Amino acid sequence: MRIRVLGSSAGGGFPQWNCNCPNCDGLRRRKLMAHARTQSSIAVSANEVDWLLVNASPDILGQIRDTPELQPARAMRDSGIAAVLLMDAQIDHVTGLLMLRERAGALPLLATPEVLSELDSGFPITRLLSHYCGVAPHPVPTDGRTFTAPGLEGIELQAVPLASKPPPYSPFRGNPRPGDNIGLVLRNPATGARVFYAPGLGEVTPELLAIMATCAVVLVDGTFWTGDEMQRLGLSPKAAADMGHLPQSGPGGMIEHLARLPATTRKLLIHVNNTNPILIEDSPERDELTRRRIEVARDGMDIRF
């Protein structure tokens, strides 16, 4: 089974179009050892022909161009994207659905009832798409049951409710529901190997850590290095926790939790904000991750399990 990292950045990409933080400015001026990144999304396949798109970022068209496997060209108009699964209703994870409107038939869309509700009302993408290809909604269970995606029976899926935040436009922003944000366990039925994917993660509970410990690969929230990163740079009054993200460093940070996983677990960070120093490949923060055997996901990365 194969995972293709289509995009590894947080919302806005890297460099962000309107940002002149040291990272974005340094990349534009070619003064940093760093690479541009698009907004986070992955694609998963059991046969490398039919793919499950997990989150549809605003950069989806460029990501498809950079991934020939997503265009198998079996007909005059075709796509390897068999279905889309959404982890949440954040704009940087759903706006790309609009770019898929030329699809010949209704787009199978897997999401929790909470996310489907947001996309029917607060940010009514599904209603907009009803005038184009249409959407075939598939509610995702969050009670521990496994499920499959239409046309992708070779991939076993399990949704895990996470502590995080619904989108700023949501009326539930200040009162999150269990289905607003999920992690995803992907299992290869042929080998039993499992991957845990969670680009938005505000808290690692003992129960969640136990699930992560059963996985060969964990691909988790790498948004901020410190909890006050945006505040220190004067870019936002909000801390990482206010945005539903667990920073990597400090007591209780992601690094500390990942250290509790088995030594054999491959650990990767994704959804990296443009302000995060781990984007700089020769930074002390990246060196620290390397010492701890934690990788930073990059666009175009392949993960096989």
Rank of each mutant, 00 (worst) to 15 (best):
T214K: 04
C215Y: 00
A216T: 07
A216C: 01
V217N: 00
V217L: 06
V218F: 02
L219S: 10
L219D: 04
L219C: 08
V220Y: 02
V220C: 14
D221A: 13
D221V: 08
D221N: 15
G222Q: 04
G222A: 11
G222T: 10
G222I: 08
T223Y: 01
T223F: 08
T223M: 13
F224E: 02
W225K: 05
W225G: 03
W225Q: 01
W225T: 04
T226K: 06
T226Y: 07
T226L: 06
G227D: 12
G227P: 08
G227L: 03
G227H: 09
G227V: 10
G227Q: 06
G227M: 07
D228G: 06
D228N: 11
D228K: 00
E229M: 11
E229I: 05
M230R: 11
M230C: 08
M230N: 07
M230D: 13
M230L: 15
Q231L: 14
Q231C: 13
R232P: 08
R232E: 11
R232W: 02
L233M: 08
L233E: 10
L233W: 09
G234D: 09
G234F: 08
L235T: 11
L235A: 12
L235D: 07
L235F: 04
L235W: 02
S236M: 09
P237V: 09
K238A: 15
K238L: 15
A239G: 14
A239H: 08
A239V: 15
A239W: 02
A239T: 14
A240E: 04
A240I: 05
A241H: 02
A241P: 01
A241D: 03
A241G: 05
A241C: 00
D242A: 15
D242I: 13
D242G: 11
M243F: 00
M243A: 11
G244C: 09
G244H: 02
G244A: 07
H245T: 13
H245V: 13
H245K: 10
L246N: 03
P247Y: 01
Q248P: 10
Q248A: 15
Q248W: 14
Q248K: 09
